[in-house]
Design a protein around this nucleic acid. Structure first.
Lengths: 242, 242
DNA sequence: CGAGCCCTTGAAACTCGTCAATGATCGTGG
DNA sequence: CCACGATCATTGACGAGTTTCAAGGGCTCG
């Protein structure tokens, strides 16, 4: 299971045996979390860094008026809140979407990992790639039309799920249309309409929770998707400088 | 000058004399950059991490169709691209808005700073706060109306400029309306209209490049602004766990 | 003084949100 | 196993928010 994380980190920085032993020691007690439940909530004092081993989670936040913005999807191998282990309060929440397997890593364990130079760099990479994804989402929501935004999100999920071996030309997508609407900043009604637009254009098919990408070429072109911002090459490593 | 950076970092983590000496040694050769010029460009191999000592810069990116999204404003004391020192290619550009004083820090100097535990944590804080700001921008652009979005950005700039002593109830804002439009994801025409809305409501006054916040209470309430996400307390320190 | 950029304004078209109602799907308990 | 309720998806009509196009006015700098 933890191979997902080790594989991801080694995609960034080669690790030695002691690095891996240390990582392993941190992933000892995974637990299962039911769907649609918070793993961490806004305002809390962060005690643990959470790592997703299996399942689909998201990072989100509400406005004062009560509308929700999803700010990241968290897939197997992803840290949920590495970015917040130094901060006093969570400025957003983490919630499961499907059933998840999660590890809670105490803050001081993370500090111990950071003492090892290669692990430290690998964790930097995680944080920096997360930020890169966030920037692309801002561009997406700020500058593209709803149909392009939706297509872009679906492209990103395809690429990221492929990296962890959970997609080929299709994948399980446990999201509701309202989730997607809150991701790209539209109403759920409008999301439904642009979704049908993509279906009519024979770019995707989506039924149950199974999404099929019918024409990835066109879908990428239509949405302006360019995977560079994910900083992962074909073999999962060659886009990093280290 | 470099006091701005030291002060900011010490707001996160107390530094010892050797830490400060090391920081100082890194800020030796500032240079001046004229307005409206790129400091770093998308696609480039990043060689330096850039630090703003004085002036106003921004992080931005274009879509394939040619529309621009501004993804961050960079103020004195801010690292422009700390987040990218481990990546092979810039996935966005950094450009000046006003005349800027900048220091170029070689990548291996940054690695040297990271070897010192306290400096390493301080730099983590910088990166993580940047990401927190980015998340708030995504919420802003995704969920709020144009007038609220604009008001929110103006609130954030007020708070951040106050921290570095460049604002009281007003500040110099060298942006054009098109810059602001590309920040909140509207057309410049519409930005102009919502700007006048804020003026009519007596929330702000903006003439030349001088912005006056007439009613900060109302402006914050109107935009849903809550400074928590900046992770800075009244004394600039008490919101961090270290 | 002129050129260029920036700001401002109006009108028309379009994207998208809201409201409301109907239909489909799924999990659960009877 | 079916019925039920709840959640989710879909559709239509209308209105609000926003974009685009186009033109005019103001400011600044050489």
């Amino acid at each position: 299971m933890n191979n997902a994380l080790v594989k991801k980190l080694e995609g960034y920085v080669p690790l030695d045996a002691e690095d891996k032993r240390l990582l392993d020691s941190v992933l000892q007690e995974p637990r299962t979390v039911v769907p649609r439940v918070d793993i961490a909530s806004e305002g809390e004092k962060p005690v643990f860094v959470h790592l997703i081993l299996d399942g689909f989670a998201c990072r989100y936040k509400f406005t004062a008026e009560g509308s929700r913005q999803i700010m990241a999807y968290l897939l197997p191998g992803d840290f949920c809140d590495l970015h917040v282990f130094v901060l006093k309060h969570m400025d957003h929440s983490i919630g499961t979407i499907s059933k998840c397997t999660v590890v809670d890593i105490p803050r001081d364990q993370i500090l111990k990992l950071l003492e090892r130079p290669r692990l430290s760099l690998a964790l930097w990479c995680c944080a920096l790639v997360d930020a890169a994804v966030l920037r692309e989402w801002l561009l997406n929501v700020g500058q593209r039309h709803a149909a392009q935004r939706l297509a872009h999100v679906l492209c990103e999920l395809l690429v990221r799920l492929r990296i962890v071996g959970l997609a080929d030309n299709s994948y399980e997508l446990p999201l509701t249309q309202s989730d997607l609407a809150d991701t790209i900043g539209t109403s759920n009604v409008h999301l439904n309409r642009v979704l049908q637009e993509l279906r009519r254009a024979k770019l995707i098919a989506w039924k149950g929770h199974h999404l099929v990408i019918l024409d990835i070429e066109q879908l990428m072109k239509f949405s302006g998707f360019n995977p560079n911002y994910l900083h992962v090459g074909k073999d999962g490593a060659d886009e990093l400088a280290l």
